[in-house]
Nucleic acid binder design. Sequence first.
DNA 1: CGTCCTATTGAAATTCTTCAACACTCGTGG
DNA 2: CCACGAGTGTTGAAGAATTTCAATAGGACG
Lengths: 253, 253
Amino acid sequence: MIKTMARTPPVERLDIHNSELPVLCRACEARHRGVCGALAPDQLVKLSKHTSRHAYGSDEELVPAGEDVRRYSNILSGVVKLTRLMADGRQQIVGLQFAPDFLGRPFKSQTVASAEAATGVTVCSFPKSVIEEMVATTPELERKLHEQALKELDEARDWILTLGRKSAAEKVASFLFLIATHIDPEHKTEDGPVCFELPLKRADIADFLGLTIETVSRQITKLRKTGMIVVEHNRTVTVPDLRRLRDCCEIER
Amino acid sequence: MIKTMARTPPVERLDIHNSELPVLCRACEARHRGVCGALAPDQLVKLSKHTSRHAYGSDEELVPAGEDVRRYSNILSGVVKLTRLMADGRQQIVGLQFAPDFLGRPFKSQTVASAEAATGVTVCSFPKSVIEEMVATTPELERKLHEQALKELDEARDWILTLGRKSAAEKVASFLFLIATHIDPEHKTEDGPVCFELPLKRADIADFLGLTIETVSRQITKLRKTGMIVVEHNRTVTVPDLRRLRDCCEIER
DNA sequence: CGTCCTATTGAAATTCTTCAACACTCGTGG
DNA sequence: CCACGAGTGTTGAAGAATTTCAATAGGACG
């Protein structure tokens, strides 16, 4: 599970209104840091009437590409990959989303990318129409969605640099750094030691980095052998010194 | 040049109010298809009080990376490249913008990418503060900006696929196809013959595609020799059959 | 006419992919 | 309890794609 912002929930205000909130929303992360934070209690009540939770297993498709989408979602837990497919089967992950990100393309019923669960994923979903109605009357909601779009755009452009100009070694280091700094919402450090579960298998990492499985594997081995990371059970990664890993990414400016 | 929306300008309404419009805005493209389309005449008057036009030569910097930005702009003509630089000098273009795109990162004073003129560029610029004030009171303006952000996000993800999974030949074909379909706002065809000036020199194309100048040159030569394109004076490109070029991009889904 | 900038082309070097073999884990069922 | 297969990950060697280095050419401009 991952959070995108460090802000702590406004506890007192929450206590006051908690009884007015739908049961579903009371303990929900997205209520504070996600788009629902822009909604008033009565709006949440209205929304929750059409809301349902879903769980998906690894590699299950949440939103198929090219289909008419009628529902939007909030990611409650897990990691979602947005993937694009080419005619000959080549695949590329064009975005990763973590809780409590909003899932869906506002103002468009079709997306070229499909959304798949990378790990186990739970979402809270609601009809497009209800959200679009609320967007029209609640500027704060549009602001939230706008800000998420801008954040995703920033991230996409970061990734364009990585894909276009970095070597395989730097790509893998950049990926690990990305996960290390995104996987734990509280632990927003950029240095020191970190330990986490890789949310993606090698094939997904390869599709994210524009590499092959084998190259990813070799680069991970290299990072292991230089002590940059420690890997257990293929998925559990420990980074003894995050700053040293960061240096492998060659990011700057 | 690119359109953000398919909607045709409301001609009658324009005639009625034309005399109320600032002189600068009357003939402006951004007035209809850009963000200014969301503004009422009195807002345009207010904005135009703080507005100024600027012209930039090729490779001039419009917005430096990492600096505090106090002004936003509309691109009136020309092509702007958003570039990111790595510590060792490697460079990547993370986005291309055409008239009448909006230039600036709402809600943030710093950007990691710098904006440079790829061709000669003219912009209409205004203080950040004025726009942010108007955004707060004019939902249509935020909507426009939101939609542009989403459009740019879609384009960035298209490009992630190109960078991550396409061969050099497909990348160059994709770039030419992109330019061919974006350079002329009126001529929105996806097939038939097209002729245009390349807005980027080889070094820029390389930085956009994550390749070297030499590879770009070789791939262009290959496309020339197969009759896919005709090139004059290094910059003037004719595509006899746009659909055939599109097939070289291997896009799908 | 020389210089700078841009673009092209060739040959060698490097990086990454492809193909192939193998190892590990986890369930299932004999 | 072990064999089996599927899914996942690692490693090696050969091959292909792209980069690097180097040389050349053309145009614009003083």
